[in-house]
Amino acid sequence: MKIHLTSVFVDDQAKALAFYTEILGFVKKHDIPLGEEHRWLTVVSPDEPGGTELLLEPAGHPAVEPYRSMIVKDGIPLAQFAVDDVHAEYERLRGLGVRFTQEPVDMGPIVTAVFDDTCGNLIQIAAKPE
């Protein structure tokens, strides 16, 4: 068994696609209309086109908003992405106007930072220190 797909709920799929591709740098993998303006919309890392897909899932279910607002309030990220250098990625994303709720911190075995994906979620980036 292996993890081939994981998902984040997004407020607006078109806006999410723009953020996840143009700002974060992922590439679109699948974009299949599902009716009611919903799409099966996934992105992958350009480094691993056959790797794990991230599903940008519509956040329409009434349970999503209370769940997300409570965990976002406490600063809890919904997903973690690996980067080579958290500090460099922090500077790059901040330059593009991305809002961080946690600046890069050396946590010992790992360096992490947390940002707002503008689609309703907090995302953690992580790297093993050199």
Partner: peptide
């Protein structure tokens, strides 16, 4: 060290930097 932390960041610092396994 840094003022202005979310609950998540404080929990992460306690568990990862100080090995304090305290619930949220």
């Amino acid at each position: 060290e840094k003022s202005g932390q979310t609950l998540f960041e404080i929990c992460a610092r306690l568990s990862m930097r100080h090995q304090l396994g305290i619930s949220r």
